[in-house]
Simulated scan of single mutants.
Amino acid sequence: MTDSLITLPEAAEHAISIRAKALTFEDPRSRLLLERVRLVAPSDATALIIGESGTGKELVARLLHTLSGRGQQPFVAVNCGALSESLIESELFGHEKGAFTGAATSKPGWFEAADGGTLFLDEVGDLPPSAQVKLLRVLQEREVVRVGSRQPRKVDLRLVAATNVNLEAAVQAGRFREDLYYRLNVARLALPPLRERTGDILPLARHFLEQYAKRLRIAAPELTPTAQQRMLAHAWPGNIRELENVIHYAMLVCRNGRVEAADLQFSALALRRPEADAPAAAAHVAATAPAGTAPSLEQALLELFQQAPPGLWQHIEETVFRTAYEYCEGNQVQTSRLLDLSRNIVRARTAQFGIHQTAQRTF
């Protein structure tokens, strides 16, 4: 591992992974991040890594682990969003024989597996409320209780959590426990999106060119000046993951050992408006509304407030969710992205509001 580039170990085993598999520290913002990682790593403080999908949060977690005193101990990575809600507690905290149907033997959870080392909880914002309560207790008491047991087991590990969800907004909306948020948000590391650290784009591109050239057993092609300009001008909504896919495709179609601008196939997905622009957008809506009137959404809310019906907030939340769900034609993935909710929350809301789910429209 060098100071300028880190990759997942045994990268070939991650060929079908959706994770970002490389991260550089060439851009000034990335160098500041690296310095922060070096300062935080030696301690056992709980770390919270925030950043958009595909920015390399697991790589930063692994770097924290490697630079810490636990570097020779296990590093266990768990994607909370990939665990089913019914089994997430037994997966994280373990279970005893007979604790539930199918529990033929006792099994330690991921916390016990990471004992002595580092446990990385990715997509921690997807944890259901019941698991949030247990996670809080583990962080407070440094012990786990397996499902079906009353005997606590001590664990000695460092917890690193990551999310692409706005946890502050989730706390305000009641989807994430405030006390757990403060327990996680000790050493906060923010990964800028690739579009905000353009100095990393070309070094990453060259790294992926070399990696795919090795797989294809050919010489690594060069990026032409026009191709470099196109890459630097692109917004990269998919971040490092998208960059890798663009390079992979370019390697397959380029000729004469040169990647031209025409060989680059960019994502057509539009970037969501950054949160920092939200006040300006609201001001624009207000400024463009007819004189003496409020924007339509604000006016509708004001009328509701005047009526003050019982269960007002639940009515608003259900109306927003149902409208978004219908707009997305019953697709839970698109609804999750549109409303900036975790997948588990979308599943829970469809059940709470009695929304019928078809097999074709589930995850």
Rank of each mutant, 00 (worst) to 15 (best):
F321T: 03
E318S: 14
L202S: 01
L232H: 01
N331C: 13
A103S: 03
R183F: 00
V171G: 06
E143Y: 02
R273S: 14
F363W: 04
Q352H: 13
G102N: 06
L341T: 01
V138I: 04
L136S: 03
L180I: 13
A169D: 15
I240Y: 04
K134C: 05
C254D: 09
H65R: 03
A235G: 06
L121V: 02
H234R: 07
F266T: 04
R343A: 01
L121G: 03
H284K: 10
S68Y: 00
A348W: 07
Q332F: 04
P309T: 08
A278S: 13
E326M: 09
R137L: 13
R153H: 15
S17Y: 00
R195I: 01
L271T: 13
T2Q: 13
I50D: 02
D3H: 09
L341D: 02
Q172G: 15
T7P: 10
A162P: 00
T118W: 07
R197A: 00
L157T: 02
L127F: 00
C328D: 05
W110N: 14
Y249L: 12
L32Y: 06
T55F: 08
G69P: 00
P28Y: 11
I18S: 14
L204M: 06
G117W: 00
W313L: 13
L189K: 13
E275V: 11
E13M: 08
V346E: 08
R322N: 01
R137C: 10
T224V: 04
T66L: 11
N331K: 10
D115T: 06
R349V: 10
L87S: 03
L67E: 10
A190K: 14
P42C: 10
L338P: 02
A324E: 08
A173Q: 15
E13S: 15
A104I: 14
A286E: 09
P108R: 06
Q151N: 15
R70A: 03
I6M: 09
T7I: 08
D340C: 07
Q314F: 03
N344G: 09
T101C: 07
E96F: 07
Q140D: 10
A250K: 04
H315W: 11
L191I: 03
V60G: 04
P9Y: 11
E242G: 03
G94T: 10
E13G: 15
G54Y: 07
E91K: 08
